[in-house]
Amino acid sequence: MPYVMRNVDGDICGLSEQLQEGYAEEFLPDDAPEVVAYQPTAVAYIIGKSTPWRRMSDDEVADVDAAMQAAPLKQRRIYEAASYISTEDELFGTLKALLSAVLSPARAEELLAPET
């Protein structure tokens, strides 16, 4: 790890253990200063897989669904089989990178925030 995704300002906005074509294609070593600075130090948590979808507007759902349909089949199957999303799982980083690219990094944070 990690493949990094960058926002329009060139800052890292997502990490993935695997290459994500169109999203996270640049590889940096784990100890790269940018990667170390980006990695969250927050406590791990789990959210229901449906939580981000419930938090999205209808327009956001359409945009995210289109991006997910363009994602590699393996990635889609892993997401479909999951019942929850854990911040400690690669799926979380992949989903965060996709949401950041389609919507914005700030909106991805809102959608993937812990359930209260």
Results as ranks from 00 to 15, higher is better:
1 M>L: 09
1 M>H: 11
1 M>Y: 11
2 P>M: 07
2 P>T: 04
3 Y>F: 14
4 V>Q: 06
4 V>C: 10
5 M>Q: 13
5 M>G: 13
6 R>F: 08
7 N>L: 04
8 V>K: 12
8 V>G: 08
9 D>R: 12
9 D>M: 10
9 D>P: 00
10 G>F: 02
10 G>W: 07
11 D>Q: 13
12 I>L: 10
12 I>S: 09
13 C>D: 09
13 C>H: 00
14 G>A: 09
14 G>F: 03
14 G>H: 03
16 S>V: 02
17 E>S: 13
18 Q>E: 12
18 Q>I: 12
18 Q>W: 12
20 Q>I: 14
20 Q>C: 08
21 E>S: 10
23 Y>R: 07
23 Y>A: 03
26 E>P: 06
27 F>I: 11
28 L>K: 11
28 L>W: 06
29 P>W: 05
29 P>L: 10
31 D>M: 13
31 D>A: 13
31 D>E: 15
32 A>L: 00
32 A>Q: 02
32 A>W: 04
32 A>R: 01
32 A>S: 12
33 P>K: 07
34 E>Y: 01
34 E>C: 01
34 E>D: 12
35 V>E: 04
35 V>N: 03
37 A>W: 02
39 Q>L: 10
39 Q>P: 00
41 T>D: 08
42 A>T: 13
42 A>L: 11
43 V>K: 15
43 V>Q: 15
43 V>H: 11
44 A>H: 10
45 Y>I: 04
47 I>P: 08
47 I>Q: 07
47 I>W: 06
48 G>T: 11
48 G>C: 11
52 P>D: 03
52 P>M: 05
53 W>Y: 06
53 W>L: 09
53 W>H: 02
55 R>E: 09
55 R>D: 07
55 R>C: 05
55 R>Q: 06
57 S>H: 00
57 S>G: 03
59 D>E: 15
59 D>I: 03
61 V>R: 15
62 A>I: 10
62 A>P: 00
63 D>Y: 00
64 V>T: 04
65 D>H: 07
70 A>P: 00
70 A>C: 05
70 A>E: 13
71 A>Q: 15
71 A>C: 14
72 P>H: 12
72 P>F: 09
72 P>A: 12
73 L>Y: 15
73 L>E: 15
74 K>G: 15
75 Q>V: 14
75 Q>G: 05
75 Q>L: 15
76 R>K: 15
78 I>P: 00
80 E>F: 12
82 A>I: 05
83 S>P: 00
83 S>M: 08
83 S>G: 15
85 I>L: 14
85 I>Y: 10
86 S>L: 07
86 S>I: 03
87 T>A: 08
87 T>H: 06
87 T>V: 08
89 D>W: 14
90 E>R: 12
91 L>M: 14
91 L>N: 05
92 F>A: 05
93 G>K: 03
93 G>F: 03
93 G>I: 01
93 G>N: 01
93 G>A: 05
94 T>H: 06
96 K>F: 09
97 A>Q: 01
98 L>E: 03
99 L>G: 01
99 L>C: 02
103 L>I: 02
103 L>F: 06
104 S>P: 09
104 S>G: 08
105 P>E: 07
106 A>T: 07
106 A>L: 08
107 R>T: 07
107 R>Y: 11
108 A>S: 09
108 A>P: 02
111 L>W: 02
112 L>Q: 05
112 L>H: 01
113 A>Y: 00
113 A>G: 01
114 P>K: 10
114 P>N: 06
115 E>K: 04
116 T>N: 10
116 T>M: 03
116 T>W: 01
